[in-house]
Design a protein around this nucleic acid. Sequence first.
RNA 1: GCCGACGUAGCUCAGCUGGUAGAGCAACGCAUUCGUAAUGCGUAGGUCGCCGGUUCGACUCCGGCCGUCGGCUCCA
Length: 643
Amino acid sequence: MSTIEVGLPDGRTLEVSQGATVLDVAEQIGAGLARAALAGRIAGELVDLRQSLDASCSLEIVTTKDPAGGEVIRHSAEHVMADAVKRLFPQAQVDAGRTDHTEKFQYDFKVAEPFTPEDLDAIAAQMKKIVKEKADFVREVVTREEAERIFTEMGEDLKVQRLHDIPDGQDITLFRHGKFVDLCRGPHVRNTKQIGAMQLIEAAGAYWKGDERNEMLQRIYGTAFATKDELKEHNERLEQARERDHRRLGTQLDLFHLDPDAPGSPYYLPKGMVVYNGLVDFMKSLYPKYGYSEVMTPQVNRARIYKTSGHYDMFHDDMFWMDGADDEEEVGVKATNCPCHCRVFSLGKRSYRELPLRLAEFSRLHRNERSGTLTGLSRVRSMAQDDAHIFCEPEQVEDEVARFFEMLKEVYTALGLDGLEVKLETRPEEFMGDPADWDVAEGRLKDAVEAAGFQCGINPGEAAFYGPKVACDFKDVLGRSWTLGTIQMDMAMPGRFGLHYTGRDGEEHQPAMLHRAVLGSLERFMSLYIEHTAGDFPLWLSPVQVAILPIADRHHDYARKVADTLAAGGIRVFVDDRAEKLNYKIREAELQKVPIMCVLGDQEEEAGTVSPRLRRVGEHRAEAMAVDAFVEDLTGRVARREV
RNA sequence: GCCGACGUAGCUCAGCUGGUAGAGCAACGCAUUCGUAAUGCGUAGGUCGCCGGUUCGACUCCGGCCGUCGGCUCCA
């Protein structure tokens, strides 16, 4: 029997016989390692312990110390859950599990009745029993026919259908533990006893193969860790995350209100409005630099313009419609600015000399989103985007994309936001235009993103109907991804509106059109920004910038005088003249995330100074300074939009 | 829209198997006038999401609707 060489992380090389498994190698390194082993890793890919090694390679043994170990544990707990469900509900059919086990696991089941919370408790209890049975996971490679026979006999019709989706020529592997068997690529732990702590999260409906037209299966989510402590830590992290959920902070900090009488349509309260306006003003301040012109176009338009744009057919059910005042045709509240911006372009004869024409608008947009999709400020029916449409010559598109990303970088840096994921979304099933044009446009966009210095992932089939799109995604506090900034090419609108310009050759040409937003929807941006900052906004965006805290009633006059001076300098100031102790006022201002507090007592009043306490830098007693100097310092920081 | 859970005072929440509601914080009043994260006492505040049903009696049980939350789907 021939031998192969296995390179280890510490630089050593082991000689093992060809066909030895990952576990064999682990045992050869040490019995302790073999006991702790959860999986192997070859060239960055996780492999199952029972995988045989046919050629020399570099191998790493993954244990609980490796973050990937948790994924293996959760994946294995997933099988234990399906086993438990089958034991308690023998009629249940098992569909597929989850592919991403970084945080949780899941399985979909076809059952007559949805699972109740009591069912989940019973399933969780059953899972514990199964783990105690200490069954080894067994990996089998079988033929397609064999697999089909096994699952047909078990009555697992969904599984048989899934089997048909596996391309020919690919190994079909099964994993067993005890009597439970499932079609699975692995990897799995050696023995169920390695699953130290499990927890079911919830049950939810999910359409078979993710398609609304299919029947709804019942999904169970759960998570698992090597130890109870890790599970506890995980739950504590989640709890902390919920503390900074924008909906919670929105109430605590009086930023916005979501009313049952206006689902998905936020009320901005005075403090939220400061943040909203701050962001809008910031974007507007950049318009001269990046060459945008602001317009304002009608909220309500006749159906005709939406028929021209294509929105009437594509999104009729998702718009708000009304009867016209007379017997004229129906009118719709705009869901997007693009039709109107096309109309603006079409006014008068355009020359190449005017291009690129960049039209920006902050109008509120209304989309009649399905009730189940609404979520806080993240997904709303009433919103505004920092929207703009760029009309340019086709050969200017790449420059425009580059310019967009330059602006985007400036904005996100100024706001202290990082962690953006940039993705190209490609042609969807329903689209307008020529597929060949799409291919070219997609390629150009991707190149431009990479030229701007971003890694560009791909989301296949996710683009809008009119053209490919680049989306900048950001994760919320619960780990959900939301698109903020976006730039997309429009292959449809210029043609539909018959847009053209006179080129330098004297001929008429159709302009290229780009849709773009840096912040995306202001609502969604606020939701993520509130969570990102935990409501602790930079000075220039803080609803209350300075809290004046007089120590005793006799300081109230001086407090008001200082406040008036600050307010006259454009600073948002609040005087806490309640008959409360200083500590109480400080605590209150801390909880309201007021960035600067001025405690005023005899010392300050006599000297005519303030002693600012800067919350952000944890500076409790700064040097006393003259009020005028303080105002000057603050207005400077605000004007520079210091983070 | 679909699946599930939830909906009690401004906020956060308690209220066992049906007998018309309670706490903490906030608000308000009085006292306190205090130097860097909670002063004390008191007052007020709720047709228990809405509508209907069962019952002598419903916050509690049942049904419908509305909304919220978590998923699914959708997202110009």
